[in-house]
Computed example of a mutant assay.
Amino acid sequence: MTHQVRTKWLGKMQFESTNPSGDLMTIDAGPENGGEGKGLRPKALMLSALAGCTGLDVASLIEKMKLDVADFTIETEGELTEEHPKTYHTVRVDYHFYGNNLEPKKLEKAVNLSVEKYCGVMEMFRQFAKVEIKIHYHTL
């Protein structure tokens, strides 16, 4: 399988990029780098891709395991190297589960299946960064 996106320059530091589904997103640099901040930043998009990939896995497993989760968020943070090209050397992924009937052992299994087996973006990140995982449970 091959994924293809098309990215078109809109002027200044702004681009419009397609997704294989045809959806569009805008990419732009911040003012500190000559952009207008009217779009998503490329490196931050990598963190979003990581969160989205593992999030889809975990959401699917929550449904398959019939778990009672009221809400679920993923906070992803990447630390960049000092020298150019700046790359992520450490990435933290915090899973936050909210609900009154959470089952921590099953949710931990769901996260671990994503992290260790299913999430291809997670595996790509592991090729160049240390990935740290934490799970947090919140009662409503």
Results as ranks from 00 to 15, higher is better:
43 K>G: 00
103 E>C: 07
43 K>C: 00
82 E>L: 12
91 V>A: 07
29 A>C: 03
75 E>M: 06
92 R>I: 01
52 G>R: 07
20 P>L: 02
70 A>Q: 15
10 L>M: 15
69 V>W: 09
23 D>W: 00
14 Q>D: 01
83 E>D: 13
3 H>G: 13
100 N>F: 00
32 E>P: 00
35 G>K: 02
7 T>S: 15
39 G>Q: 10
130 K>S: 07
106 K>L: 14
121 V>H: 01
120 G>C: 08
11 G>Y: 10
73 T>G: 11
116 E>F: 00
92 R>E: 02
34 G>A: 08
84 H>Y: 12
43 K>S: 09
16 E>N: 06
89 H>R: 04
77 E>T: 15
118 Y>A: 03
40 L>H: 12
10 L>N: 11
9 W>Y: 12
24 L>W: 03
2 T>H: 07
53 C>L: 12
35 G>M: 04
135 I>A: 11
68 D>M: 07
112 N>E: 14
55 G>T: 09
9 W>S: 04
8 K>N: 07
139 T>I: 14
8 K>R: 10
138 H>Q: 01
70 A>L: 13
107 L>A: 05
88 Y>E: 06
63 E>I: 09
57 D>V: 07
55 G>C: 08
79 E>C: 02
15 F>A: 12
133 I>A: 00
32 E>Q: 10
3 H>E: 14
126 R>V: 06
58 V>Q: 07
45 L>Y: 09
132 E>F: 00
93 V>C: 06
28 D>P: 02
132 E>S: 00
37 G>E: 03
8 K>D: 13
9 W>L: 08
38 K>I: 11
138 H>L: 05
15 F>C: 12
79 E>D: 15
35 G>C: 02
3 H>N: 14
129 A>F: 02
54 T>F: 09
66 K>P: 01
134 K>E: 14
139 T>F: 11
129 A>H: 04
28 D>W: 01
